[in-house]
């Protein structure tokens, strides 16, 4: 077994283990941390496949930004776990049977007979001066410019959708009035009141 293969099996093992741990974790914060580990292992496998740019993007965007956001959301929302699990047990037996059948059927099709190394040769290695990013950039802005623009439209929809659903009418929006805040004087905000302290009998 070559060093590459050993690395592949190590990363794959962590990938699968972390994904399973994420699904079965009872604590949402822990699940996010396991998901980060899964992303990290996936990125490592991509590096083995010579897709450095994708791997770095995965770590920067997903691990660095999306997952941190996830952690914030989980910490801010108080998710009631018991209500989420209420129907879990009653669906479990049927779910397990269906999942087992699907997994067995897929294993028959996707096994070594179809996707083994004898059937699908390993891709050729590139030279040391091969630049992944150059090829990607050229492809993205020429051959794939149409999907690229469509993805941009998709993001536009996400923005419009978020604002449409969250934006309430102007009445109950809290906005800042900068000019008013700057021109405020101390006497507008603080005023002193003289209070006579009551004596011990309360008179």
């Amino acid at each position: 077994m070559s060093f590459d293969q050993i690395l592949f099996y190590v990363f794959s093992f962590w990938f699968i283990a972390a994904s399973l741990a994420m699904i079965f974790s009872r604590n949402a914060a822990k699940a996010v941390l396991f998901l980060i580990l899964a992303f990290f292992s996936a990125a490592s496998i991509w590096i083995l496949l010579e897709a450095e740019f994708l791997a770095i993007t995965l770590i920067l965007v997903y691990v660095g930004a999306v997952m941190v956001l996830f952690l914030f959301v989980i910490k801010m929302l108080n998710i009631d776990k018991s209500s989420l699990r209420a129907k879990f047990a009653s669906y479990l037996p049927l779910g397990l049977i269906v999942a087992a059948i699907i997994a067995a059927e897929m294993a028959l099709v996707l096994g070594n007979n179809q996707f083994g190394l004898e059937m699908m040769a390993a891709p050729a290695r590139h030279a040391a001066d091969y630049s992944n990013i150059t090829v990607l950039a050229l492809q993205l802005y020429t051959d794939y410019v149409y999907p690229f623009e469509l993805a941009a439209v998709l993001l536009l929809i996400a923005i419009i959708a978020a604002i449409t659903l969250v934006h309430r009418n102007e009445g109950n929006r809290k906005t800042q009035n900068i000019a008013e805040q700057v021109s405020v004087k101390a006497k507008d905000r603080v005023y002193l009141v003289s209070i006579t302290t009551p004596n011990k009998e309360g008179k």
Partner: peptide, 13 residues
């Protein structure tokens, strides 16, 4: 696929 997603996301909203 991208067309389908553009359609679906708008419909959900």
């Amino acid at each position: 696929y991208l067309g389908l997603e553009i359609l679906s996301l708008s419909l959900y909203t």
